[in-house]
């Protein structure tokens, strides 16, 4: 009597082939040196979702985004964006890195940086023309930064720098926005601007995946959440995911019981 044949792994979480998810991850595994950062992650982002990726420090949130973009090597896993490979779908993705990842003393103005978002569209060897500069300025305007177009980026405040990054992502006219802690260390005006822009692009049909730290605001800003702690703990609509039990599982002793209860109550 033979045991039954094992069936292909892909059938564990079959992908929707007809209406492919904006972001579909299977078995993503990443390790730094010999410490795993993300382990066997399966995830399908809902179309037109505003998704918060939450989890304690060191849970692999940023690593997940970088691995999806091929910026860090993966041990295993398969990532599809709108049903195609990353290489094919690259132009449909805009990535906002953490603000600390670049040299703000670089000789570039806010407008220059936003124009960089248009480079993919302009193509190799072609110069940035007047209409590209005008487009860049209109994106700056959308994040309330029109007055700072010519300012060297190092002379902007942290929040303003973040808005420049946001405008640059807008310029990429993407269908999937990946943001790495855009709210870290910004002022209230910037926070509002970011939320407004996220909603605008969502309403225009895009999907936003955002690493987020502030649990208090998750329910206000987002409609979906992915709770990560190396493993995927849970994902789904914010109201279903922000429960005492799941937060307890993700954060454990790192959040006080009262805090967890307050956050779960807010959802």
């Amino acid at each position: 009597m033979n045991p039954p044949r094992l069936i292909p792994f892909e059938t564990r979480q079959p992908r929707n082939e007809i209406a492919p998810s904006p972001l579909s991850i299977r078995g993503l595994t990443v390790a730094y040196d010999d410490k795993p950062a993300v382990w066997d992650l399966d995830y399908d982002a809902p179309d037109r979702g505003l998704i918060a990726v939450i989890g304690p420090n060191g849970a692999g949130k940023s690593t997940m985004i970088k691995a999806m973009l091929g910026l860090v090597p993966t041990l295993a896993g398969d990532v599809r964006v709108f049903g195609s490979t990353l290489r094919q779908a690259r132009r449909r993705i805009a990535y906002i890195p953490q603000r600390t990842s670049v040299d703000w003393d670089f000789p570039a103005s806010a407008e220059d940086v936003v124009a960089m978002g248009l480079y993919g569209e302009i193509g190799w060897c072609r110069p940035v023309r007047r209409r590209h500069r005008e487009a860049a300025r209109s994106y700056l305007d959308r994040v309330g930064m029109a007055d700072f177009a010519g300012r060297q980026i190092g002379q902007l405040s942290g929040g303003q720098q973040q808005r420049v990054f946001l405008a640059r992502a807008l310029a990429q006219k993407a269908d999937l926005y990946l943001m790495d802690e855009p709210f870290a260390g910004v002022d209230a005006a910037t926070e509002r601007a970011i939320v407004n822009v996220m909603r605008e692009v969502r309403d225009a049909g895009a999907t936003v995946l955002c690493v987020h730290h502030d649990l208090q605001t998750v329910a206000d800003y987002f409609d979906h959440a992915l709770i990560l702690n190396v493993h995927a703990i849970a994902h789904g609509a914010v109201d279903d995911v922000l429960t005492e039990e799941l937060l307890q599982r993700a954060y454990g002793g790192r959040l006080a019981e009262t805090e967890i209860r307050a956050i779960a109550g807010s959802a």
Partner: peptide
């Protein structure tokens, strides 16, 4: 990875 997949009745997820 392979063994966990097999425990659930699936083939190992990747070549390695």
């Amino acid at each position: 990875r392979g063994l966990l997949a097999m425990a659930d009745g699936y083939l190992p997820p990747d070549g390695l």
